[in-house]
Design a protein around this nucleic acid. Sequence first.
DNA 1: AATGAATGAGTGTTCATTCAT
DNA 2: AATGAATGAACACTCATTCAT
Lengths: 204, 204, 204, 204
Amino acid sequence: MARLTQRRAPRQERAQATVDAVVEAAALLIVEDGYARLSTNRIARRAGVSVGTLYQYFPHKEAIIEALVLRMADEQIVAFGQALRDVAAREPGVELGIAAIVDAVFLAVRVRPALARRLLLEAPRGDVAQVDHAWRQRCTELLRASMYARREVFRSGDVELMASTLVAAGFAILQDALAYRPELLDGDVLRDELTVLASRYLLP
Amino acid sequence: MARLTQRRAPRQERAQATVDAVVEAAALLIVEDGYARLSTNRIARRAGVSVGTLYQYFPHKEAIIEALVLRMADEQIVAFGQALRDVAAREPGVELGIAAIVDAVFLAVRVRPALARRLLLEAPRGDVAQVDHAWRQRCTELLRASMYARREVFRSGDVELMASTLVAAGFAILQDALAYRPELLDGDVLRDELTVLASRYLLP
Amino acid sequence: MARLTQRRAPRQERAQATVDAVVEAAALLIVEDGYARLSTNRIARRAGVSVGTLYQYFPHKEAIIEALVLRMADEQIVAFGQALRDVAAREPGVELGIAAIVDAVFLAVRVRPALARRLLLEAPRGDVAQVDHAWRQRCTELLRASMYARREVFRSGDVELMASTLVAAGFAILQDALAYRPELLDGDVLRDELTVLASRYLLP
Amino acid sequence: MARLTQRRAPRQERAQATVDAVVEAAALLIVEDGYARLSTNRIARRAGVSVGTLYQYFPHKEAIIEALVLRMADEQIVAFGQALRDVAAREPGVELGIAAIVDAVFLAVRVRPALARRLLLEAPRGDVAQVDHAWRQRCTELLRASMYARREVFRSGDVELMASTLVAAGFAILQDALAYRPELLDGDVLRDELTVLASRYLLP
DNA sequence: AATGAATGAGTGTTCATTCAT
DNA sequence: AATGAATGAACACTCATTCAT
């Protein structure tokens, strides 16, 4: 992935609209035709824009994918935060428990599932990795903060390490399910097992 | 991935040598130039063989990769089994504990690390999935058997689900480390943490 | 043969020039090197264009050949019509007789003889069939109309069948001559014999 | 087409069997997979022979096709002769009329129709032409002799020219039908029309 | 005589990217 | 700013033919 995500900061509305159109066209094409058939010319045509224009906003193809994955991650994080806030609103005064966090992750991971699945299976891991990594780090940070706030509840140990280990494990299990057994994401079994894993790992 | 791994069964020595040369050339090129730059012509040249010959033994480019990944998985599983046997030999009479298994996985995962890393980061998951899956299933099976043999030691629960969940988690953590923090594979910290995770998850 | 003859409608002059260049390059190469040695890369080079450009205007190699044969057929039909009109101009008031039609066909069939010969001998019939067929149908139609207009002159019978049978016969004889005895096309013998054949077949 | 049809005269039974196997394998493959997918390796495998052996009997691929077409032509000519003799036997003493000859041609042309059709449509005309030409010449010769024997029945004119013109016309009409309207070969309409054409062309 | 492994030039086609307009 | 025609290296794969065994 390149340093620059976009060639120029799109300040005007029109420019932002173009960027959006391109990213969404890419998403559409991936879902429809698969990652392997994605091409800049096709993206441009689908976005109703010329290739030249596309290259005015993105320095290369990878940047489009980077932007797309970034956008997906943002949507997931928004869904994640919203889910946590919903729980908090429902039961005010009670601090977030492990089950709530697992629930929220389950919700977040189901944003744009068709697109997520194709990216997961068909894109070179590296093209998606940095953003994926960022998303994980935000979750880790959140978990770490939550643990720190109620540190008396959890077992002692390297909080940083515990949080990152758990997040890595959780994500991997979810991605595995998304790739090979999507139906598990809709039932309780996996969610409950993940809750058990987290509880046993974190509680004294 | 295609049904057939190889187009013709290499019965003679020379033929087996050719197959080997092709697979190893692919491995070399992936490490040197990256997965994306792999091409059948380059593989053939590097293997000291003509493209035509390559296609006498492999029906697709994909089949070469499949063979390579399969070979890696075999080597890892051999290393894994060997590690377990070593422990058993060192402390005869004692049954294999969780720590021993985690140790063995750590060893196994470090076979051909440069190649493994490139495949992990650069290959679409789908290209590698079947073999990855197979490797996991063997481990799951092994863990399940080990748990069943000493079932009084572990907490009650769905043994199948527990084993596969733990294997998925363990692999993910290791792959994450391989990709982004390779140094963690050489120290004790991650290994110990994984042991803690496994113990807390599995023991009563 | 594919549905589409051209991938994009060449609206600008330059585009039309490119299409022309490609088709003419193909014609040249067929005459020079033979149908079997025709390749998209060679055509592009000869046309002074890149392969990529070629594929912007033609979806397949086949489409190029289709366009070429179509162009030849058009030229032949133009020559055919012109010949008929010439006769009509020379002897106004007299209706076109069988001899005039045969004459016109003889003229038409000698458009681009070198190219025609190679296509005839070296191209699979299927590659050329649609256009060949079209050309024949236009002739059949013309002959049928001509017969119908002066139906009292001809013997009774299934006009449709008679026309198509005669056209098939005439074409075959001409193509045979073109392929194996080109000199026959320049003399009177074959033309006279064909006139006899037609007259005897059509007249009472 | 090359000068040599076969590299060595197969004197021994085994050799003849090999040649037969190769030619028949080619015929089978053309009918099954089409002319374009024919390859020497496939022919050899299908014939139960190695490529090397194949190349001991045929100097190149074209020679195989040449042999195949030759064989077909022989079979057709045999069928043709047989049909003529059958008529003669049925009505001894009566000389062969035009209708009988047309009938015989219709029979002959339906030998191996699937193979004939694919060769006609898919093979470069040149690969089949020489043999095709030979077959026509034999027919022409036969017709000429027949006409000469009963020359008082026919109109005067260049017998040679008349015969070859008629044969060319007849063959073309039949091949056209074989290619595009095979059902016409099984009915009477086309045969009758061809009889009319021949009668009107040849009789005074 | 027979094998079949090996060859490598050649094929049609794609696609990220550039640049004259 | 926007266009889209043009590029050409690169790709996966085929196949007639050879030749060591």
